[in-house]
């Protein structure tokens, strides 16, 4: 098997055996890809520090016949996004978005777009843009890329532009007018009009302009709650990184 070269982002990395490392990458050409770096922990020269999570790398690897696990031949660091290491909030958001990006690329055609979105998100986080706003807009962008994007334009029941007070139907994945709730079939969560407008734009804005959206603390809270419920509904479990974000977020006794 000839070696292949591809740009990639490290989305997970764990030690294996005595000196090896098993690394999961996201590549715009092959999607999610897991490969083993033999002797990565013993020889510091071979892979240097290119196998750390959330690094943008150029990967050279060989697929092995009848094995799921490829072999990493070489991995060259393009950027390690050092800014992520300076702040737990940024780190947690990077972890969340990487984890979700890894979940949504299966065999679909959305892989190059997902890769581009993740690369942009990591870049913006590294530059110090508000991690909370980036998390909200990119979470819903990733869901849309995976084909799970909620329906924001019109009410699920009356098909008109929704009128407040608004609700979000977790099971059906869309917005519902206050007056239509009696005909709704799924679990309903309250949704502020401001949050709805932001989320609608997050799904349609060109990728490069996504960082312009600003979510205030209330909208952030609502978005994260919705995203968590929605992801749990579709995947049947939570993202591991959500737990980390909860642990590092300051507790406010007056929270709703």
């Amino acid at each position: 098997m000839p070696a292949r070269k591809t740009p990639a982002i490290v989305i997970r990395s764990r030690d294996y055996g005595e000196a090896d490392r098993i690394v999961t990458f996201l590549s715009p050409e092959v999607g999610r890809l897991t490969a083993i770096a033999k002797g990565a922990r013993k020889s510091k020269r071979r892979f240097l520090n290119s196998l750390e999570p959330f690094s943008r790398v150029n990967l050279i690897y060989t697929e092995r016949p009848n094995r799921d696990l490829g072999r990493i031949d070489n991995c060259e660091l393009v950027s390690s996004y050092p800014g992520l290491r300076q702040d737990l909030q940024r780190l947690g958001v990077a972890a969340c978005l990487s984890e979700l990006a890894g979940e949504i690329v299966g065999t679909q055609e959305n892989v190059p777009e997902t890769f581009a979105a993740l690369e942009l998100a990591l870049n913006l986080l590294d530059q110090g843009l508000s991690p909370e706003s980036l998390l909200c807009s990119f979470l819903f962008r990733f869901l849309a890329l995976a084909g799970y994007g909620p329906r924001w334009q019109a009410c699920l029941v009356c098909q008109q532009v929704p009128r407040g007070p608004l609700w979000f139907d977790i099971d059906q994945g869309g917005v519902i007018c206050g007056s239509c709730t009696t005909k709704a079939s799924g679990r309903l969560y309250p949704l502020q009009v401001g949050t709805w407008k932001l989320l609608r734009r997050a799904q349609t804005l060109p990728l490069a302009k996504l960082s312009r959206l600003r979510f205030d603390p209330w909208a952030q809270k609502q978005c994260l709650g919705l995203a968590q419920g929605f992801i749990h509904h579709h995947w049947g479990r939570d993202l591991r990184s959500f737990k980390f974000l909860e642990k590092i977020s300051p507790r406010d006794p007056g929270d709703p």
Partner: peptide, 12 residues
């Protein structure tokens, strides 16, 4: 160490 991917926060 603090690890977001393993869900290890400062209080752990």
């Amino acid at each position: 160490l603090i690890s977001p991917l393993e869900g290890v926060g400062p209080e752990d």
